[in-house]
Nucleic acid binder design. Structure first.
Length: 374
DNA sequence: TCTGGGGTCCTAGGACCC
DNA sequence: TCTGGGGTCCTAGGACCC
């Protein structure tokens, strides 16, 4: 039994490892507004080729456009219907690559920081400090000074908590989420508030009466194992408690695969145009894997038939290859094997590459965010 | 309303081997 | 005739994230 202290101890804050999650505010829209200052304050939507009559979705909307109910992932046609006065711009990936590189270089220049890049506009920063808020503020200032871009920072004692904290800080703010305030902040929120729980998982959890983060944290582990398996079941319960890795992994990211996919403005029907499309996609994929000098060992075909049915097929190749015609022929063969002659809206070809010497270690979860390796 | 394009990882079940 | 138990590899499919 701990004695009651007569007065609170005056202790200096200890130096501890912290995880900071840095997330740029409306990144893509912000980059566009930087080079077209006259757009500041206007509703800006970036998506597709900038033509709202085409099949495309919103990549990012400015805060002004979001006020109209426009958000990422929304069909462009619907977005402009909601916000008729919006300025619609084409996606310019090279511009965002360049801006992103500046931001990440700024983060890597923070003394003692380990940086794990998660995407164009976000990264974990691991740092040992007695004042994570001061570090967060200095990062915001440094990024703004170098790139004219604003960011929000989540401060946490795990990657999961830091990542989730950021949203509460947006825009341009800092928010801290730790073991101390986790349940106070998150306990009553729906499970979808967790990084890695989407609508499908949430629905399966709800089937067991698990609706909130608190419910998940205190759920019967055997129920979760039965529903989700021995790896994912316990993982979801840990997620509900905000428990995750406490270290930031700054080893360079190694891609497992490269793929290209295209949604056709008019559906494909003729075999010749289908095989032509697969050839074009395969050639693009080969450009990417040649750059990495890692051959294709498995071909993934993705097909979206009209009106809206998507399926994938995989085939391992007898020999690793850089030959686009082999990849295209394999994809065509997989497509033929489906025996489905409905018109095609989308085709995708992905090349899974030969792993580097010694395999993938450590396994990375970039772009997924969540489940533990192993 | 009508749904992009880039990724990663997990599970289940069948084939096959010892 | 009835049928083990362990392991690996492969494919199909699902789910999630930015």
């Amino acid at each position: 039994m701990a004695p009651e202290p007569s007065e609170p101890p005056e202790v200096a804050p200890a130096v501890r490892p912290w995880v900071l999650h840095v997330d740029l505010d409306q990144f893509i829209a912000a980059v566009e507004i930087l080079r077209r200052p006259e757009l500041a304050g206007l509703p800006v939507i970036v998506g597709g080729r900038g033509d709202p009559t085409e099949r495309a979705v919103v990549s990012t909307a400015s805060y002004e456009a979001r006020a109209f109910g426009v958000h990422s992932g929304m069909p462009l046609k619907l977005a402009v219907r909601k916000c008729k006065e919006a300025v619609v711009l084409a996606v310019d990936a090279p511009a965002y690559d360049a801006a992103s590189a500046e931001v990440m270089a700024t983060l890597k220049a923070v003394p003692g920081a380990k940086v794990q890049v998660l995407g164009w506009d976000e990264a974990f920063v691991g740092i040992e400090t007695d004042d994570p808020w001061a570090v967060a503020r200095s990062i915001q200032a440094a990024v703004l000074k170098r790139t004219d871009l604003h960011c929000s920072v989540g401060v946490g004692d795990s990657t999961v908590r830091a990542k989730i904290a950021t949203d509460f800080g947006k825009p341009r703010g800092v928010f801290e989420l730790t073991r101390e305030n986790w349940f106070e902040v998150m306990g009553d929120r729906p499970t979808t508030a967790l990084w890695g729980v989407g609508s499908r998982i949430a629905a399966r959890l709800a089937g067991h009466g698990i609706e909130t983060v608190h419910d998940l944290a205190h759920a019967d582990e055997s129920v979760l194992v039965d529903e989700f398996g021995p790896a994912m079941g316990p993982h979801y319960r840990r997620l509900g408690r905000g428990i995750g890795t406490t270290t930031v992994d700054d080893t360079p990211w190694v891609a497992r695969a490269h793929g290209r996919e295209t949604t056709y403005q008019t559906n494909l029907v003729e075999p010749e145009e289908i095989s032509g499309a697969l050839t074009a996609l395969s050639e693009q994929v080969v450009e990417d894997i040649r750059r990495e000098e890692r051959a294709c060992m498995r071909v993934h075909l993705k097909v979206r038939f009209a009106p809206f049915f998507t399926t994938t097929r995989i085939r391992k190749l007898a020999e690793p290859t850089f030959d686009a015609s082999v990849i295209a022929a394999t994809a065509f063969d997989l497509l033929t094997g489906l025996g489905d002659d409905r018109p095609i809206r989308l085709l995708g070809v992905r090349a899974e590459m030969v792993p580097p010497e010694g395999g993938y270690d450590p396994p990375r979860t970039v772009g997924r965010g969540g489940p533990p390796a192993r």
